[in-house]
Computed example of a mutant assay.
Amino acid sequence: MHGAEPNKDFRSGFVTVVGRPNAGKSTLLNQLLGQKILIMSDKPQTTRNKIHCILTEERGQIVFLDTPGIHKPKHKLGEFMVDSALESLREVDLILYMVDTTADFGTGEEYILENLKQVKTPCILLLNKIDLIEKDKLLKLIKDYSALKDFLAIIPISAKTGENKDELLKVIFKEMPQGPMYYPEDEVTDQPERFIMAELVREKVLQLTRDEVPHSIAVVVESVEEKKTLIKVRALIVVERDSQKGIIIGQGGSLLKEIGRLARQDIETLLGSKVFLELFVKVEKDWRNRGRSLREFGYSDRS
């Protein structure tokens, strides 16, 4: 599109996706973008930063902000995550509020709705996981939520199967103002490759350790070297306790090896090249409550 006549009907804008942890936000964005950019896990609160994901089509460009789930924070990292999500409500052209229809309505949803009522930004309600619930329950939810806030639209979806994805995009594009292309058309995220690589390693740790190592891990890619036939990546997995380090390494290094194998496959897809991935594990006690560590691992600019 560069160099060609600008399309007068080209629409562009910024859309934030909010919801309780585990509502399916990252799954939806990966579905809309048609590729895996965001880490997916069945554990809540896996997204920690506001990540810009970019969808460019003939009709326009949508810049999505995937925000951390809004929840009651228990530590400094949690505060950073929630502040980040709430701040995004004022910065965008449209809010997508995502609800897991299989979960009960509770204080978490009340808290989000309270915050949504305080901003003038138009909001679409997405009722997710409709492939898992009865139609009667869905109709009741639509009625109940309609009474709580004046939504621009209420769209039942399945982020997993992509059901109603086209309808959702139609409504989003209609709401976008006419505007420029903010990012090159082949770009799908504004995050550097190192960040995505670190996220892919973190996803595998979360997948393979289940509940034993919750969210007390960070991953930092320390170096990326391009060799003739492959790319050498060195990454550090940071945990808070010695016991967690033992779990991640596993018996005879077996689990760390498996984390490396799975992460390497995803990184090779990302980079389109053969990769040699070296993983190390380090204990940094209570890092989620320390400003310096949060800054070092890319989570905060506050002291």
Rank of each mutant, 00 (worst) to 15 (best):
G13E: 00
E268A: 12
E284M: 11
F151K: 06
S293L: 15
N289C: 07
L294Q: 05
F64L: 04
V17Q: 12
G272D: 08
V220A: 14
L255Y: 11
V18Q: 03
G252C: 04
F276E: 07
I70Q: 00
D301E: 11
R302Q: 13
K74E: 12
F173T: 03
K72Q: 10
E114N: 13
L200F: 11
G250F: 11
E109K: 01
V224Y: 10
V171F: 00
A153I: 00
D186G: 07
K8W: 08
S254V: 08
L32V: 13
G298P: 03
N30S: 14
D104W: 12
L138W: 00
L255K: 14
R210Y: 13
V213Q: 02
K227A: 13
G179R: 06
M98P: 01
E58G: 11
T101L: 02
L255I: 10
K149G: 02
K137N: 10
Y183H: 11
P21M: 08
R288Q: 13
Q207C: 03
H215Y: 14
K36G: 03
S12D: 09
E278H: 04
L127E: 03
R202T: 12
I267C: 10
L236W: 05
M181P: 12
T46Q: 03
I248C: 03
D242I: 01
L139S: 04
Q31Y: 07
A23Q: 02
T269I: 13
E185W: 13
Q251D: 12
S26R: 04
I70K: 04
L139G: 01
I267P: 11
F80Y: 15
S223K: 14
A103G: 06
K245F: 05
Q265W: 08
S254E: 14
G253K: 04
N289L: 08
R11C: 08
L168T: 00
I231A: 01
L116E: 09
T102I: 01
G162F: 00
D211A: 14
N289M: 15
E58Y: 12
P68V: 03
I172K: 00
R48A: 01
I37E: 06
L168W: 00
M40H: 12
R234L: 11
I154Y: 07
L96V: 02
V201M: 09
V82Y: 07
E225K: 13
S88I: 06
C123H: 00
D286L: 01
